[in-house]
Amino acid sequence: MKLVATFFGVGLLRPAPGTWGSLAALPVAYAILAFGGFWLLVNLTVFVFMSGWIATKEVTRGKEDHDPSYIVIDEVVGQWIALFPVGYGALMMGVSIDALWPGWIAAFVLFRVFDITKPWLVGRADARNDALGVMMDDVFAGFFAAIGVIALAAFAHLVLM
């Protein structure tokens, strides 16, 4: 279970294990999108969410700290959600995921900002102090980042071009 919770040991990297988890999620998402496309990423995100929830529950069972920094599977899920607009955009436009490189950067930066600052629903989920809260704060951060990616893409396409 610890192997899942740490995303194969990435969560043990220092400093800033959450950032390492988000960074590690990027090449994996790239491979998923390149191999199977947007819908595979969506399905694997759901699967990893469920696996991460179970692993987090097991790893933190009986411990005071409900969200130790080495658990980064939640960052992987949130980062993948933040990348949904990139994958979907490439699918809809029939372009390579490489062509949407600004979206990759925006998804990473926005996700980290929302995950670190924990505004509104992100903070409320984190305050649950349980395994579901650990996972859900990053789900919300990922969704907010995805909305930001969409807004930035709209701005770039409608205003800048």
Score class of each variant (00 low, 15 high):
19 T>S: 15
102 P>N: 00
39 W>H: 13
88 Y>H: 03
6 T>G: 01
53 W>A: 04
126 D>Y: 09
5 A>G: 13
157 H>D: 08
121 L>T: 10
59 V>Q: 01
130 D>C: 09
109 V>P: 07
44 L>E: 01
18 G>K: 09
33 L>Y: 04
57 K>R: 08
103 G>P: 02
145 A>L: 11
74 D>S: 15
44 L>P: 00
102 P>C: 03
89 G>H: 03
84 F>T: 09
151 A>E: 10
118 K>L: 04
101 W>H: 05
35 F>G: 01
153 A>T: 15
52 G>M: 11
55 A>R: 07
140 F>Q: 08
119 P>H: 00
62 G>K: 00
99 A>G: 07
107 A>M: 01
10 V>Q: 05
140 F>I: 13
136 M>Q: 14
97 I>Y: 04
38 F>P: 13
25 A>C: 03
87 G>M: 14
16 A>H: 01
86 V>C: 10
55 A>E: 11
89 G>Q: 03
77 V>Y: 11
101 W>L: 04
12 L>Q: 07
60 T>F: 08
120 W>Y: 11
98 D>N: 11
16 A>S: 08
109 V>A: 14
95 V>I: 15
33 L>I: 05
45 T>F: 04
97 I>E: 03
39 W>T: 08
147 I>S: 12
32 I>G: 05
116 I>A: 12
56 T>P: 06
159 V>Y: 12
90 A>M: 11
37 G>F: 03
127 A>N: 09
3 L>P: 02
6 T>F: 02
56 T>H: 10
96 S>W: 10
127 A>L: 07
147 I>A: 14
39 W>D: 05
2 K>V: 09
136 M>I: 09
22 S>V: 03
31 A>T: 06
24 A>W: 03
142 G>Y: 00
119 P>C: 02
71 I>S: 10
40 L>H: 11
4 V>E: 05
